[in-house]
Amino acid sequence: MDIAASILVAVMMAATPLLLAALGELITEKAGVLNLGIEGMMLVGAVCAFAVAYKTGNAYFGVVAGALAGVTLAAFFALLVLVLLTNQVATGLALTLFGIGLSALIGKGLVGQPIPRLPLLSIPGISDLPVVGPLLFGHDLLVYLSLALTFLAHRIITRTRLGLTLRAVGESPHVAHGLGLSVRRVQLSAILIGGALSGLGGAYLSLAYTPMWAENMTSGRGWIALALVVFGTWRPLRMLAGAYLFGAMTLAQLHLQGLGVPIPSQFLSMLPYLATILVLVLMSRDAVRIKLNAPAALGKSFHPDR
């Protein structure tokens, strides 16, 4: 039983960075903005979190730095797509390229340095209980935060006026504008929240999942997060299931490599990417369902004069 519990804990750890980044992208996309720069924001978040944790010796400062780094890059993206009305796809790609370069530049002297891991919030007594202890009470702050934010996002999007505003902007910015809603302000907020969550996802990687910094350490997780949004058909709770499924697969793949299965390690490493393609194909096959669930104005620039 203890083995099962430790596997589940590891699954949750592998899923958390994906969940945080995907949740950020979901909120951004709900406002009708497609940000393909998640990979870049995660990387810069990861390296800033690591650098601050390394300098201060406190992983919590690192968490804050990671989120702020994500917000900063997202603000840059927002300036381009909202004010200068650039193409969202191309701008997102630029953000990813920029983030890859910038993170490598910042992290040049940090490769291989040790940092304190993000502490586990264990409660003496309860956390030591078999199975239930580590599974429910033995995680770090970001694991709980990712879950809480997912449920909160679900609640806000489906049950509140704020969620309605967000969805209205994403479905038809022109109608929302006509109703007197500030389209640009809603989209800006969504982009910044998306940046913060991507930055947190990156911070989780460099502070908790593998407490170290390596160039390109996200290895495509930002893009997998984008696919998870489609997998969840733009619904937070389904996306949560998707993220944990992917976490489980990442873990299975790592364990197969560790067990010395006679399959070259490169083929096992391909699995998450192939699974992403498979998931996209399965979910997108029904064009009507995608059309019904995807925000109608996704990826289109909005300017009231046009």
Partner: peptide, 29 residues
């Protein structure tokens, strides 16, 4: 995948890049 299954070509082509690079790594090792 795009024409038959409506899968976004941005994501599929990007994922296939990682697969191709891993395949090359396998071949040369």
């Amino acid at each position: 995948l795009r024409t038959q299954f409506n899968a976004n070509e941005i994501l599929t082509s990007l994922m296939l890049t990682y697969v191709a690079q891993l395949f090359l790594s396998y071949l040369v090792t």
